[in-house]
Amino acid sequence: MAPEAWLAVVRTAQEALTNAHKHAPDAQVMMDLRCAQDWCELEVRDTGGTSGESTGNGYGLVGMRERAELIGGTLDAGPVDEGFRVRLRVPA
């Protein structure tokens, strides 16, 4: 994997885990990394929570998405079931 793709994976994992801790500190968090010959996908999802801060400027998600797009990747993030998911896909 190219260094910039690896950096995007690491930074996205850090930011997604920080967001989960901040917005849903009581939630369980799962992280999966799947790689194939041409791509690598990181998925971070939590089970949601009722405590934690709900405020924020939203720049974390914007920054993750911009980092992905700069290297030809994609990032989607949003509510799923009772939690939240961040999914990054970058070229390998």
Rank of each mutant, 00 (worst) to 15 (best):
A13F: 01
I71T: 02
V9E: 06
A27G: 07
G78M: 06
V90R: 02
E43H: 06
G63D: 09
E53P: 00
L70F: 14
M31C: 08
A77R: 05
D26V: 00
T50F: 10
V62P: 00
D38R: 13
E4W: 06
L70I: 08
Q37Y: 06
R67L: 13
C40T: 11
R89E: 05
P91M: 09
L42S: 00
H23V: 00
T12I: 04
A24V: 04
A8S: 02
Y59H: 10
R45N: 06
Q28A: 15
T18W: 09
D26Q: 14
R89K: 14
P91S: 00
L7A: 15
P3A: 15
N19Q: 14
V90Y: 11
T74F: 05
A24M: 09
R87M: 09
A68T: 08
V80L: 05
E43I: 10
S51W: 15
D38L: 09
D76K: 11
R11L: 12
N19A: 08
V90L: 11
M64E: 00
T47C: 01
T74H: 08
L7Y: 03
E69L: 12
Y59L: 15
D26W: 06
R89L: 11
E53M: 08
R34Q: 14
W39C: 00
L61A: 11
F84K: 05
L7M: 13
P3G: 13
A2P: 14
E15K: 04
V9Y: 03
I71R: 08
A13K: 03
T74E: 14
R45T: 11
N57L: 10
T50N: 10
Q37I: 08
V9S: 02
Q28V: 14
A77C: 11
M1R: 10
P25H: 04
R67D: 12
H23N: 02
E66H: 11
L42D: 00
L61D: 02
N57T: 15
M31T: 12
G52P: 06
M31H: 03
D38Q: 13
P3V: 08
G49E: 06
M31E: 07
P3L: 11
A27D: 04
V10Y: 07
R34A: 13
P25V: 01
A20H: 07
I71V: 09
V86K: 01
S51N: 10
V86A: 05
V44L: 06
G58D: 09
C35A: 14
E82C: 11
R89C: 04
Q14A: 13
R34V: 11
M1T: 13
G63P: 04
S51T: 12
P3H: 08
G73I: 03
R11M: 11
F84A: 06
H21E: 13
R89A: 01
L75N: 04
F84S: 08
T12M: 05
V9L: 15
P91E: 04
L88E: 02
P91T: 00
V10D: 14
M64R: 00
R34E: 15
R45Q: 14
